[in-house]
Each structure stands twice: as structure tokens, then as C-alpha cells.
């Protein structure tokens, strides 16, 4: 009987402690490559992760002995072209053909071979290009009655709606040019260069109505302006890799509906590594924002 009770207690204890132990840190290869449709092939960066708590330095973490190439895939999945990448700095690999361009609406595969490791691979489908059809202003008063709007032709991405990111880059990011909100948020010791370029986050095309001419009108929110003066506004559409990477990285350390402290790895589409091999299509235009705030 005593043995039976002991066995029962042991079974109960084991049941309470379902085997779910913490993993140990394991070094992984990180790829970083942001490609843009109809532009020159962008560099590929390869590095290693570092244990949490250690100082991060890309040069130290860089992978310097990789054999890197990007393959353009035909519709049937076969390799239509191969672009060899060569190391140009520690961990940075650049296309050997300086004139090679990324074709829109085309699928590409990245391959990186490193001694003693499985081949790192990742694929991206490049969004189709689009253009600005109309714009409503070149010069705008900050928080004035007219907000900047642009009519864009529609990009295309297979299997889903277009997803945008709008970013703004200030030409003259000095403290005197900060708009009131950012002037309040930026501490004296902050490097204003960190605010030079701000972005909207991911915006689904479903937020906008499609015009009769199959364009969509994107309205530029004032929150995306950090500095008065000349700003370059870029409208990006993103591929699945960028979409998943950004949306998961944004809420990794809080801000979503998960409980504080519950963290999941960023969603990537990289085999035998982590990181981002993603692509966008983008258009740029310039606006000037003045501080002539109208009286309330």
C-alpha cells in the first residue's frame, strides 16, 4: 500500500511538471538584405547572434567566409539567372555585377554557404512596381487644413492585398526644425539623427478606397512629420517576408495582446538561419512642411 501511495504521488508530481524545460542559447546565422524592385541588387549582410547581455557589434559578429549568391527563379521554379555576391567588408556581400537589377514581380532565392554549416536559404517574391499618379500639394502648413495626399497606381502582390509602409526623411533634422510633438519627446541628449527618418508601420490597402481609375489615395498623417522643412516621402509596398518580420518584431517585447513577458521569435522565412531577406517596391516624392500653424 505504501508503495502504491508513493507511486501515485510520484505520478502526480511528474504530471504537474510536464517536461518543458528552458532551451540553452544556440548561436544562429543572421541574414539581412532589403531589396527594392527595379533597383540595383542590394547588399547581403551575414552575422551571428550573440548571447543576451553581451555587447553587440556587427563587425565582431560578422560572418566573413560565406559563399553568397542570389538566384532569379523562373515561373516553374527553375533558376533563370544567378548573381554572385562578393565580400566587400566584414559580413557585407555585394553583387559582383554592379549593374544587376531586381526585377519586379519576380521570385528570388538567396543561398549562403558557410564552412561547417548547412546552406542558408531564403526566398522573396518582389512586389510589382507602382507610381504616383497625382498629388494634392507640394508645400503644406503643419497641421493645417490641407493634408498631403497622393494617388498611387496599384501595386500587385500574389495572394493578398497590398501592404504599405510610409516613411518620411527630413532634409534638415535640426532641433529648431522639430515639430511640437517630437520636440517634446526628444530629450536634449538624444541624437536627432534618430528622428531623421520616421515611418508609419504596416498599413493594409484595405484602409483605402479604390478610385474609379483604379488608383488609391493615400493620406499622409501629421504624425509622420518630425521636422519642418523639406521632407522626402516614400511609399513602400512590402513582400511577405518584410510583412512578417516587421509585424512580429514590432510586438516582440510588448504592445500586443499577449501577456507581458510572453515572447515569441520573430517570424522569418529563412532556412538554417534567421533574419530578413525581403523586398519592397517604392516611390519617392518631396514635400515642404512649414510651421505656419493656423490659429485654432
Amino acid at each position: 500500500m505504501r508503495n502504491l501511495i508513493a507511486s501515485g504521488l510520484m505520478a502526480v508530481s511528474m504530471a504537474a511538471c510536464l517536461p518543458y524545460g528552458q532551451d540553452a542559447y544556440r548561436e544562429q546565422i543572421v541574414v539581412e538584405s532589403w531589396q527594392t524592385a527595379d533597383s540595383l541588387l542590394a547588399p547581403v549582410k551575414l552575422s551571428r547572434t550573440v548571447p543576451f547581455g553581451e555587447t553587440y557589434d556587427f563587425a565582431t559578429a560578422a560572418v566573413t567566409d560565406a559563399d553568397v549568391r542570389i538566384e532569379e527563379l523562373a515561373a516553374d521554379g527553375s533558376v533563370a539567372a544567378t548573381f554572385v555576391y562578393l565580400p566587400t567588408a566584414p559580413g557585407v556581400y555585394t553583387a559582383a555585377d554592379p549593374g544587376a537589377r531586381l526585377r519586379p514581380a519576380t521570385r528570388y532565392r538567396l543561398r549562403a554557404d558557410m564552412p561547417g554549416r548547412a546552406t542558408l536559404t531564403a526566398e522573396t517574391t518582389v512586389p510589382d512596381t507602382f507610381r504616383v499618379v497625382r498629388r494634392n500639394a507640394d508645400v503644406l502648413a503643419y497641421q493645417g487644413p490641407v493634408q498631403f495626399e497622393a494617388d498611387l497606381s496599384r501595386s500587385f502582390y500574389p495572394g493578398r492585398q497590398n501592404i504599405y509602409i510610409i516613411s518620411t526623411e527630413a532634409a534638415d533634422p535640426r532641433r529648431v526644425n522639430l515639430v511640437p510633438l517630437y520636440a517634446q519627446l526628444a530629450e536634449e541628449e538624444d541624437d536627432l539623427d534618430d528622428l531623421r527618418r520616421v515611418s508609419s508601420g504596416l498599413i493594409n490597402e484595405g484602409n483605402y478606397e479604390v478610385n474609379a481609375d483604379n488608383t488609391i489615395t493615400l493620406r499622409f498623417p501629421w504624425i509622420a512629420v518630425a521636422f519642418y522643412g523639406e521632407n522626402t516621402v516614400t511609399f513602400h509596398t512590402v513582400d511577405d517576408n518584410v510583412y512578417d518580420f516587421i509585424r512580429s518584431a514590432t510586438v516582440q517585447l510588448g504592445g500586443g495582446t499577449t501577456s507581458p513577458g510572453e515572447i515569441e521569435n520573430v517570424i522569418d522565412h529563412v532556412e538554417n538561419g534567421i533574419g530578413i531577406f525581403g523586398s519592397t517596391a517604392a516611390v519617392k516624392l518631396r514635400i515642404t512642411v512649414t510651421d505656419a500653424v493656423p490659429a485654432p
Binding site: Y25, E27, V50, F52, S167, R196
Partner: peptide, 13 residues
Amino acid sequence: VLGRTQVGDPFGS
């Protein structure tokens, strides 16, 4: 949190 890495942000600074 076991480890970390860092990539550039092409949309921000």
C-alpha cells in the same frame, strides 16, 4: 531572452 541580433531599419533611422 537567450540571445539577440540587430538589423538595419530601411524605413526608419
